[in-house]
Design a protein around this nucleic acid. Structure first.
Length: 112
DNA sequence: TGGCTGACTTTCG
DNA sequence: ACGAAAGCCAGCC
């Protein structure tokens, strides 16, 4: 597969797929890993096409506060927390509990 | 081509 | 602690 010049989505999907089960990360973390920490929105936008990528666990990607901000884009929206809960992530009121423990940073985990 | 939008993040009030 | 505004970059019309 030839790497396109602007497959930003592809990169986001790759990182998202690397997220271990029971862990979560933030849009900014992925963006930072891709070199665009200032454009966390882009990561979320890329996730907009994740719906066509079943291998991309978009539910493991939340905002910096650990809030399931993107859950509204799921179908049903509750599927996000449902999935996180199923993986062992404690979610309360659309908010990830022990976020500091389940937080998975690609810049650290994938840092070599 | 130009301009708007957006699943975020950070900072000021 | 909460609310609002600005900054940012890439996709889409």
């Amino acid at each position: 597969m030839a790497k396109d010049h602007s497959n930003f989505f592809n990169d986001v999907y790759e990182v998202a797929k690397l997220i271990p089960k029971g862990r979560v990360t933030s849009y900014g973390a992925i963006g930072a890993y891709l070199g665009v920490k200032s454009s966390a929105r882009m990561v979320g936008w890329a996730m907009n096409g994740a719906g066509a990528h079943p291998d991309v666990p978009a539910h493991r990607v939340v905002n910096r506060q650990g809030l399931l901000t993107g859950k509204a884009h799921f179908s049903p929206p509750s599927a996000m927390e449902e999935r996180l809960m199923a993986e062992g992530v404690e979610v309360k009121n659309d908010k990830i509990q022990n976020f500091d423990e389940v937080y998975w940073d690609p810049m650290i985990e994938l840092a070599l």
